[in-house]
Amino acid sequence: MRLGFVLREMGAGLRRNFTMTLSVVLVTMVSLFFLGLGLLVQQQVSILKGDWYDRVQVSIFLCGEVSGEERCPTGPVTTEQRDALRAQLEASPLVDRVFYESQQEAYDNFLEQYDDALTENVTPDQLPESFRVRLTEPDRYEEIREQFAGQPGVEDVPDQRAILGPLFAAMDGATRVAIGLAALMLLCSVLLVSTTIRLTAFSRRRETSIMRLVGASRALIQLPFVLEGVVASFVGAVLASGALYALVEFGVGRLNDRPDFTTRLVETADVLWPTAPVLVGVGLVFSVVASLLSLRRWLRV
């Protein structure tokens, strides 16, 4: 009976202030959309990092006939140097497995990867032989690089991280922008919720004054107002999750379907968990806080 009463009062409030309710829903939706976008970009970053660390191989290129004087002062790598390097690698606890790629193998791979126009002038002795090393802990990539770069017979240990670093930096930047916008919009939605409650409380001051006089409890008087904010924010959070789902499904999802696109991207499953529940939770917490703050001021019992 009393629950029914609270729900009816809440419904009446939502209808009476329909335009305000709608604006709360939309502002909440936009703010949570940006928050969700930030979360998804972060998820994408961690997917990329994970994949890259799985795949990472340190390539140690050895000196050959064509290597320059300054990088290889001792000339082409000797058998002793090569064996010493291999022994060092195999002894290192950081190294999982070591593959050796000879100049001929490098040439074969090169032919496979590039078309004829590029390959016809290349001969096997122009390509460096190398050790391809898989690490036990990809994070400690730098240690291997420092240990082997500059050793006799080693031409170069290129830092693959330098290629991906700017990408990660850009994505972190995008996350910060999205979260910043989300914070600003959340502030808007908190202010809007409290304004809405103020207006609703004003338009229903007759009801609430009668409720006070006949001895309704504070909870009963205030609950419909809190629930109005909660319902509006919940709808906003659901709409924001829906918009993100559509974005991933129709935007990102298309890229994933292309056979030549091998990078793993965020999927709709990532929207459903954990992004959407986080958005709903944040929306609810913010609306409850906003309504309690404004009720303390505008609906004293």
Partner: peptide, 19 residues
Amino acid sequence: SWKVPALRREIGVVFQDFR
């Protein structure tokens, strides 16, 4: 303050403007 509603339940109030 949380006991005020119980007090008001024992009191009926009528105003000039009916409300």
